[in-house]
């Protein structure tokens, strides 16, 4: 069997391979994308999606699901485009408050043993309502430093690629390679034994939700840096995109089995899938379906690999 790839390796190779296949197809369909300028335009909107996906990954890691991340990112975008731009101190305080609110949500879900789907679904309306209050009509301005960062044109390698690699590596090292990260993931894998070993599950959940809130804030700020202004509905799509991104990147809904690098790759794959279908000139009525089909194909491949793994 030594000549064949192990299912485990295959499984971790699946996300990058899907991404590579998609990229090759896009380069072939639209050679113009194969340039510094092209890659920049193709990938820059994937950065906020990747950050939102990382946020979702932290939640999935402790066996919960966040249906409010889209509304949350929209609210952050609205605050970034208004308060953070006009009165930076108030803006920073508001964003820090939002992260604390996320930690409190984690505590609430843990202490009252509430289903996270219900709590976050409810919160999504709260975030959206707050976003409308902060910014009743679309507008605002991106703070200059965020705009500068997001439109950075470094030599040779387009900024979106550098940003994705940095995000993936930082989270990978923190969550997958550090002792503390192992404990955090353990809260999803085997919470009971973790508790018996003396760790506070409450603190872990609060920490994970706070991390999710932090990356949600980064996502909203990055989004405003790209769009230059905000809209209360700007990121509603991110809820589903982020969940799909984590799963596409090799994560599981339960068991603390997640992969930060995979999640970033999954988010980029989803963003590129839209471009790919658009370059194909597919009728828009079919595009949602086609996007779903790409997801199903990748997941079906994973199930096949999973079976091979189980047979061993």
């Amino acid at each position: 069997m030594s000549g064949r790839l192990s299912p485990r390796l295959l499984r971790s190779l699946l996300p990058p391979l899907s991404l590579a296949a998609l990229l090759i197809a896009i380069f072939w369909l639209q050679p113009r994308t194969m340039s510094y300028f092209g890659l920049n335009l193709l990938l820059n909107l994937a950065i906020p999606i990747a950050l939102a996906t990382i946020a979702q990954m932290f939640i999935l890691c402790v066996n919960e699901l966040d249906l409010s991340i889209g509304g949350f990112v929209s609210l952050v975008a609205c605050i970034t485009a208004t308060w953070l731009h006009d009165t930076p101190l108030l803006g920073i305080a508001a964003l820090a408050g939002l992260i604390a609110a996320y930690a409190a949500l984690g505590a609430l879900i843990h202490l009252r043993n509430l289903p996270s789907i219900v709590v976050t679904l409810g919160m999504s309306f709260v975030w959206l309502g707050l976003a409308v209050l902060v910014l009743p009509t679309p507008g605002g301005n991106a703070p200059e430093y965020i705009r500068t960062l997001m439109t950075l044109k470094p030599a040779y390698i387009p900024f979106p690629i550098i940003a994705s690699v940095v995000i993936a590596l930082v989270v990978h090292v923190g969550l997958m390679r550090s002792a503390h990260g192992t404990v955090l993931r353990g809260a999803g894998g085997n919470p009971r034994s973790l508790e018996c070993a003396g760790w506070s599950l409450l603190k872990i959940k609060m920490g994970m939700f706070a991390l999710a809130g932090f990356f949600g804030v980064l996502s909203g700020m990055a989004l405003v840096g790209l769009t230059t202004s905000a809209d209360a509905n700007i990121a509603l799509r991110y809820t589903l995109l982020s969940i799909a991104g984590v799963i596409l990147g090799g994560g599981e809904f339960v068991g603390g089995r997640v992969s930060p690098i995979g999640a970033v790759i999954g988010a980029i794959t989803l963003a590129l899938a839209g471009s790919f279908l658009s370059f194909l000139r597919l009728n828009p009525d079919w595009q949602i379906g086609a996007q779903g089909a790409i997801l199903i194909i990748v997941l079906a491949l994973r199930v096949l690999i999973g079976r091979a793994e189980a047979r061993k």
Binding site: R32, L42, L45, I49, T227, R237, G274, S278, R281, D285
Partner: peptide, 25 residues
């Protein structure tokens, strides 16, 4: 003169669509 419609009425999706149209020349 080609028409493109986003599948969902979403800002981020249309932003990506516009960037794709730039790439399509």
């Amino acid at each position: 003169a080609d028409a493109f419609t986003t599948a969902e009425n979403q800002v981020t999706e249309q932003a990506a669509q516009i960037q794709n149209l730039i790439l399509q020349g």
